[in-house]
């Protein structure tokens, strides 16, 4: 297996899918001539030309809607937001158009489109450029929401997202583009949407982690191992539809759970997972579900404050120890 970065894995996924299906095209700000603000689309213009790799004006509502319209009549657009912060301008087209089109047309118009780009926290870019929006999108039936945490997941899930007939919100973590990992060499490697992955097996406590929280959870699990606590790390990978069965099965095994997330806690994905655990596995819990979220404040610029705003290894260790009644 090749060891590549998440950036390269995403690039491979788009390249392979564009070779496979000429209806797939990439549109977004700086995706073509500039090779992508984060270089995810490097070399795609060269291979596929201006027809299929299209630099858009800074007009998020417009090109998101253009993508939805094109998808209604047979194309498979990949719409890149330079960051998901800018997708907020496009939410009308994502939520009112893409998510509802199939339903309100009585099943006549599907919208096979991927909205992708970096999300979550970045480094020292303050409040408007450093936030996690997955709970917004995941709230709505009709869209799928995917958040990969490894190079293999990034590639396999993006290929599946492009082939999927529904609108997919594909949130890459801005800090993780350079993270390396093994990716299978097989020609048509895909990972199905809606299937969680147990990133580490364990018996004493479950950490449900997604995106940037996955490597932090794995480090915390290593530290906890030293302290004699065996942690299982479950990565849902797809937020909607959520593979709740895998999470519940883990909780039934460990009886203790910490849900880690970058996003604000209020109305977050962690709150949803917590509620579902309570509904489905209440009798298996030996401690209340613990959420470890980003703080309930906008992201600050100052480096010291920014660190305080996000869950880290030390706080994740402490959270697991708390649900284990060790402190």
């Amino acid at each position: 297996m090749a060891v590549i970065t998440i950036r390269e894995a995403l690039n491979q996924a788009m390249r392979e899918e564009m070779r496979r299906d000429e209806n797939v095209f990439l549109m977004g700000e700086e995706v073509a001539a500039y090779q992508g603000a984060y270089k995810v689309s490097k070399g795609l213009l060269e291979e596929f030309g201006e027809k299929r790799v299209i630099d858009s004006p800074i007009t998020e509502l417009g090109f998101a809607g253009l993508g939805v319209g094109a998808a209604m009549v047979g194309l498979r657009p990949v719409i890149e937001f330079m960051t998901f912060n800018f997708s907020i301008l496009a939410t009308d087209q994502i939520i009112n158009s893409a998510a509802k089109m199939l339903y309100m047309s009585g099943g006549q118009y599907k919208v096979p489109i991927v909205f992708r780009g970096p999300g979550g926290s970045a480094y020292q870019v303050s409040s408007q450029h450093s936030q996690a929006l997955e709970s917004w999108f995941a709230h709505f039936p009709g869209v799928k929401v995917v958040m990969p945490a490894t190079a293999a997941d990034a590639k396999g899930l993006l290929k599946s997202a492009i082939r999927d007939d529904d609108p997919v919100i594909f949130i890459e973590q801005e800090r993780m583009y350079g993270s390396k990992g093994e990716v299978p060499d097989e020609a048509d490697f895909t990972i199905p949407l809606g299937v969680a992955d147990v990133k580490r097996e364990g018996t004493d406590a479950t950490i449900v982690a997604r995106s940037l929280m996955v490597p932090i959870a794995l480090k915390a699990a290593e530290e906890l191992e030293q302290q004699g606590i065996s942690c299982e790390v479950v990565d849902p990978r797809t937020i909607r539809p959520l593979d709740i069965e895998t999470i519940i099965n883990s909780v039934k095994k460990t009886n203790r759970v910490v849900i880690a997330e970058e996003s604000h806690p209020f109305c977050g994905v962690g709150a949803e997972i917590s509620a579902q655990i309570m509904e489905r596995a209440f009798d298996y819990l030996d401690a209340p579900v613990k959420r470890l979220s980003g703080v309930d404040a906008p992201m600050p610029y100052a480096r010291n404050l920014e660190k305080l705003a996000l869950p880290d290894v030390a706080r994740m260790v402490a959270a697991v120890r708390e649900v284990s009644y060790l402190d």
Binding site: L102, Y103, G106, G107, K110, P112, P141, G142, K144, D164, D165, D166, P192, L193, G194, V195, T238, R240, P241, L242, D243, I244, E245, Q276
Partner: peptide
């Protein structure tokens, strides 16, 4: 018709 490709292993 909520989804064109429903995923069956989850509650939704």
């Amino acid at each position: 018709h909520v989804y064109a490709n429903p995923i069956v292993n989850s509650e939704q």
